[in-house]
Design a binder for these strands. Structure first.
Lengths: 190, 190
DNA sequence: ACTGTATGCCAACATCCGTTGACCTCTGCC
DNA sequence: GGCAGAGGTCAACGGATGTTGGCATACAGT
């Protein structure tokens, strides 16, 4: 087997360190307050390098949010505990990958971020809901409800940092929120 | 009855128009992108007036979020339908008052906004939860869960504008989300 | 070894931001 | 009628931001 034959540029490590710094800054500060200069300083290079490699601040942001964001092996979840499994997976994802945090922080004031968030919704949660209900319209509603609960949880726990929400144990969270998601996906329409 | 005896300054209408414009801008754009200059232009006055009357951009923002935000007559809700009533009231509040939209858009990247949001949580949702459960710690958890669902709904419906979430009817929303809030407030601990 | 090119830094630009102070104008009071 | 003060405009400042072009250096291919 040959190694990947993408051109190994000498600047790859620089590009990567810029991207890493940008990920962290966008996730922590949102789009406006994450400045190109601060990102460059974090990456240990000159701001002009950001422009050379990513064209503009917008281009850099596009590169940051252009990652595969896939919930693991949804196909094999049994219909009986899809709620708790999904909540657990989502907590993992949130705590180990900054891209969701970035999208939430940015999507609230930036249309590109919101659009990407809608893409994640359509690509991940919607197909899941369609496996449990008959009509497409019903699935869309249920997926929206799941998204509302799951993103709301992330909002109060990780972004707004409401004390009680941040302190709840993972087990408590799964036990409380899991059944909600379960109901949104599998209960008959009210 | 005497009229209110607050000093009737000649500048009151200007002050009010600044505040109105600021409300709209902060709600639509968040803190960073809502510029003093744009607010002043909307209000039809010079940017320096904003500084004269509110001291600074931060002071203006503080004035915008310094409003009584009270969920109506919570004391008289029967324990059986607190969920649906609460969701209904919240939908009203969100659609007729921009301050919640402002707090959500700003609180995600601005600490003062987040702090105010936590204040609303502590002042409104927490006391409600304490009427339904015995211990303070349990009430805090349940209030956090309610906040997560209610703010999450607002997030996907009004801010991120997920299609299905934005198109759901008010009745559907209450029928789906009401029972969730009801369970968070009144169900036994899992 | 030479040379073209990629990599990186530096200095600067244009623009926007919040904020300030000088100046004018209108109003209400003695 | 004159005057003090409030209401309002204007131009400018200092700083930060995204972005650009020029220049030095280190590498890779011949």
């Amino acid at each position: 087997m040959a190694d990947t034959d993408v051109p190994r540029r000498r600047s790859d490590v620089t590009r990567a360190s810029i991207l890493d710094a940008a990920r962290a800054r966008f996730a922590a500060d949102g789009y406006e307050r994450a400045t190109v200069r601060a990102i460059a300083q974090d990456a240990g290079i000159d701001p002009s390098m950001v422009m050379r490699y990513y064209g503009s601040k917008e281009g850099l942001f596009a590169a940051v949010i252009d990652v595969e964001l896939v919930l693991p092996d949804l196909a094999e979840i049994s219909a009986d505990d899809v709620g708790t499994v999904l909540v657990g997976h989502f907590l993992d994802l949130w705590e180990h990958d900054s891209v969701l945090q970035t999208l939430l922080r940015v999507g609230v004031t930036n249309e590109a971020g919101a659009e990407r968030m809608r893409g994640v919704f359509s690509g991940q949660i919607l197909p899941l809901a369609e496996r449990f209900v008959a009509t497409r319209a019903d699935a869309a509603r249920r997926a929206a409800l799941v998204a509302s609960q799951v993103l709301g949880m992330a909002l109060v726990r990780y972004v707004l940092r409401f004390g009680p929400a941040a302190q709840m144990s993972r087990a408590d969270l799964v036990a409380w929120v899991g059944p909600t998601v379960q109901r949104y996906l599998t209960a008959p329409e009210p």
